[in-house]
Design a protein around this nucleic acid. Structure first.
Lengths: 202, 202, 202, 202
DNA sequence: TATGAATGAGCTTTCATTCAT
DNA sequence: GATGAATGAAAGCTCATTCAT
């Protein structure tokens, strides 16, 4: 079998096992049993267990980052709001489509080791920057109100993560992923207060 | 030494080590070295490594839950809004006061094993219920606008978790924890949209 | 069992196995089977297989070096010749007494790894220095003829090694170890030529 | 490529690697990397790693044995002494010319396995016989004094081995190999004692 | 209660060797 | 003949846990 194919196959099987048992509870033995390859074959393609996990996460993160487009403010460009919604929609689509990888990324990736923690932090850091940038654009256009955009970005990201975490914890999908996405954004955008209740600042 | 004292001492030392190295990277050897007790002494007081971690988390969760008061709607009770802010303030205070345990709870506790994951999920579940309940009270009083309160609770919780996660990832405290707490609530309550931008629903 | 005792016991058993199978053919499994201890016990006392071997050789080399006395030239001191013979006699005695360790030192110790090779070379280096020193003393006193003492030291050492190697290769002891030692010295001291055959230089 | 050529090429490369890393530290991967051939190619030409080493040593030993001529005692034959010196000179020449193989033979070959040890012992055994035979010839002609010729042969061989070992250990060549060879013989032949110091026997 | 030596299951990893292409 | 992916036995080693003192 061609080398890259075998690698892909092992990655696929690792994905399944990691999602089911978690990183630490998964042994290389589990992976090779699932992939029906010999021990040596595994080590021909990957340095160690950590390496498979790495490649799995890296690949998924790369896929996710493809979903993220910079929000463009230019005459003729789509409304900032629609662009933001597009980002959230696309990324949620990918996340729910690959629920194994999402589970691994959201619930397993932290606590592997410090180097890995850093990688994950950096990923979320990039997401935060991107969201913050969009919010700044929104502010420039008067759509987003004056506020600490860094904190606001965390509100957006944290909300999405929490929702994902909630459904992953129950090992079930939300009834309608896309609808949920839109609702989160609506909530975050519109806030919790009823009209008439003045904001503290703004 | 009295048994409960010894147990406390080992717990304290475990806390330090777990916070520094993470659960999986921490060995019983690390703990007994830090606590300067013999191997057997450790197992006299705890069933196994998992048991220490359990007790550590359980204790902290109990402490945290003491901070949470049901929001009461009654003539003469303080305003719902103030009660909610009080909850957030108290809990953030405790979290930042015990940053080791917070780090362990937020960043290490997931991925230990499935039983533990469930426990953590249940903890967050209780938090969500509590927040949702408060929001329902708020709605009854006309303060909180009509919305999916479960989702809204996740927005609140997720925002706080993300902010904590952000600062823990950088191993530093936010400049002013209490201020950050209030700002999160303000943002979540008031939303991102500038006045005039109509909400989709509400 | 006291820790140092257990260590001694494992060393003893390792000695047997190494002498029988050779270093590379010996596995840790072989050693613990012979010593009737668990795997973990082995690793509690030794870093790895190499470490046991190290300690074995170090101990033996230390014993051997106790046998070596500097040759003293002073009024009232025994004749230089007798002192040299004493060294050879004592060391041969120890070597033949511990034939396992001798076999290991002479036939197994080279080729373990480069660090080990260096250690062995240094041991032989010390022996050479000592012999050379004795020869220089002998020259001062007019007993040893003018010659390249470094080379002469190698002749002495090499002869002894070769004899040991010969008998170890046949897994038998020389008929009379001490006699052999004296004969080697006699040969080396007196040379091969019959009287009358002039030396090239002298 | 012609089969025998390929085999030669792999042998050459093995020689380099074995001399650098030693037998045990050398993997088949090292050899095929150096030889730039595929794994399967290696096994087409050699039974296993041991086989390459075998062929390497066998070839070298054969070369060395070509250097050794029986000492002939006959009217018109060159002096016995010159014939012996010729043997030593030729063999030292070959040894220093092929320092890789010499290093392998002297410092790596022992400890591979028992069958191999036996082969090496037999090689040295043949050398000893040859030397002993020469010495006996020498005795017959009155050149070599009465002595245990087997032991004397070991003195000759051991001296040469020790000198080689010494220089190989330092990974450098003696200043003048041929001169060193002659000096060893002179020393061995003439002995260490100054004239006037009577031999014990002879 | 405290100790720390002993345990052994089970992990990761290597590498000589085979075999389908 | 040549290739290199696949194999799997067996090695080294760790570490949570037990137990005799």
């Amino acid at each position: 079998m061609r080398s890259s194919l075998r690698q892909k196959q092992i990655l696929e099987c690792s994905r399944k096992v990691f999602a089911t048992k978690g990183y630490h509870a998964t042994s290389v033995s589990d992976i090779i049993r699932e992939a029906r390859v010999a021990r040596g074959t595994f080590y021909r393609h990957f340095k160690d267990k950590r390496d498979v996990f790495d490649k799995l996460i890296d690949g998924f993160v790369a896929t996710l980052e493809l979903d993220l487009r910079r929000v463009v403010v230019a005459p003729g460009a789509p409304p900032v709001l629609d662009q933001m919604l597009g980002n959230v929609t696309r990324i949620l689509h990918t996340l729910f489509e690959h629920s194994d990888l999402t589970r691994i990324l959201i619930r397993e990736a932290l606590g592997i080791d410090q180097a890995f923690d850093k990688k994950i932090d950096e990923f979320y850091g990039r997401l935060l920057s991107l969201i913050q940038l969009s919010l700044l654009h929104g502010q420039e256009m008067g759509i987003v109100r004056k506020c600490d955009t860094q904190l606001a970005a965390m509100v957006v990201l944290g909300s999405v993560r929490q929702v994902l975490d909630f459904y992953l914890g129950q090992r079930r999908q939300p009834p309608n992923p896309m609808k949920v996405g839109r609702e989160i954004l609506d909530l975050v955008a519109g806030g919790l207060f009823a009209p008439g209740y003045a904001r503290r600042s703004g």
